[in-house]
Amino acid sequence: MNAVLAIIRRDLLLAMRRKSEVLTALFFFIIVASLFPLGIGPESALLRTIAPGVIWVSALLATMLGLARLFAPDHADGTLEQMVLSPTPLGLLVTGKIAAHWITTGLPLVLLAPVLGIQFDLDVGALGVLVVALLLGTPLLSLIGAIGAALTLGVRGGGVLVSLLVLPLYVPALIFGAGAVESHISGLGAGGHLSLLAALLALAVFFAPWATTAALRISLE
């Protein structure tokens, strides 16, 4: 357990020393979401309708940006080998790395989302649902994304390939995440969507680190 905390602390420390990467993903998120009103028009009823989808798709894309750097630096400088050789099971260390990835890319998105929601004229209740949905959904994105990042490690054109592998798998998260906000706005209540999102998260917490670990071992052979 000590080693897991150490790896989280290390990755957060590294993110602090390379602030620009974290900030780039964040600004990407803001810019992409802000482009939609410019392309569609400022009519607030229309913006309210598309807001959940736009914010979620922007979050998917912003998470994708950081995935290429999830394991690549550790692979390049040999740290990944040392992780495999650590007495701590690799699955736990990988879970630690995914947690750190979420703290540096997912959590800032959750915190920023209400600001974007205001741009899209969402009311306070909808903003609350948006934050809760993102809070459940962004760890899911990091978990699934880690599988893709591990599979494409050291592979030609890995950065583009990872989006091809991961984006189709993000579909359920997008549907339930954006759907939660939509059904709240339409007065149906967000409970069903949010519990499905939580169920998916529980499933991913069990399976994703396992698949990621297997993929990492293959890439090191």
Binding site: I147, L151, L165, L169, F176, A211, A215
Partner: peptide
Amino acid sequence: KAGAILALVGVVNVPIIYFSVKWW
């Protein structure tokens, strides 16, 4: 081996995707 892991992850996801799309 890498393809195998992707295929297995996919096969777990196909019913979830199908269900989520129906729901949507």
